[in-house]
Amino acid sequence: MFPASFGYVAAHSVEEAVQLLTKHGEDAKLLAGGHSLIPAMKLRLASPRTLIDLATVPGLRGVRMDGNTLAIGALTVYADVASSELVQKHLPGLVDAASVIGDVQVRNRGTIGGSIAHADPGADFPVILTALNASFVLQPRSGSRTVAADDFFIDFYTTAMAANEVLTEIRVPLPMAGSGTAYVKLPHPASGYVVVSAGALITRQPSGSCALARVALGGLGSGPVRAVATETELQGKPLTPEVIAAAAARAAEETDPEGDTYASAEYKRHVAIVYTRRAIEAAVQRASAS
């Protein structure tokens, strides 16, 4: 199919992008990597009148250390997230996620900011970034504000971003010493999107017990879902296989996923439990190795 006809304008600064957004209002969409937006336009699921291209905005790419925080530019493509030495060193769970999104072409075009702002329920970054307690820097007309991942994803394709805000940066606090992170995913065999996924951040005390657990799940709701019961269950307990399994068994509590042509709701809940366990196990293993 062909998209409905649309206008195109390149922004050269975040301020200009915000101005253009304000000017065109609801008829405009920001274009980052275009790997969600363009297909939606070709299927005419989206018909924006104007595309505001961010590719021409400098300074939104790359990964840098900012104190105890890893700051990732919103236009950093998945492949660059996965190959970043900083990310590999501090957040292997984020590498897990960035490496399994789409295919090589998608990973070389799709951007982390685009994925976050689009908030597709089948996306990977929202899940792992929720587990990692990331926050997102939004730039409205003046100044900027930061929203935590936990508060950012509202519903299907709906976020806490205002219509005239631009997402500029993803900020991930460095996990404490003794932490491990991991992400495991059951991809849909056709789309490669998440059927079910689990991201985990586990901090292990020298004694071997769990100091902190953050676990987020994908595929079970309109966006990432925190596995609160699992997190609570792990808190302060020794990270033995039995404890992990028992905690993971509670991962799908209070979730109500929808079945589809590929997987039933029951299957999704079951896999959520299995993958939660596997993600925690992998995170614990990395915590032990670090």
């Binding site: 295919d103 849909h188 065999p189 056709a190 789309s191 999107y193 042509t261 590929y262």
Partner: peptide, 16 residues
Amino acid sequence: ALTGTLMNYAVMRAGD
């Protein structure tokens, strides 16, 4: 048609 696109019809790809 429930599987009328490449997003839900799971054709084999080289990597599979």
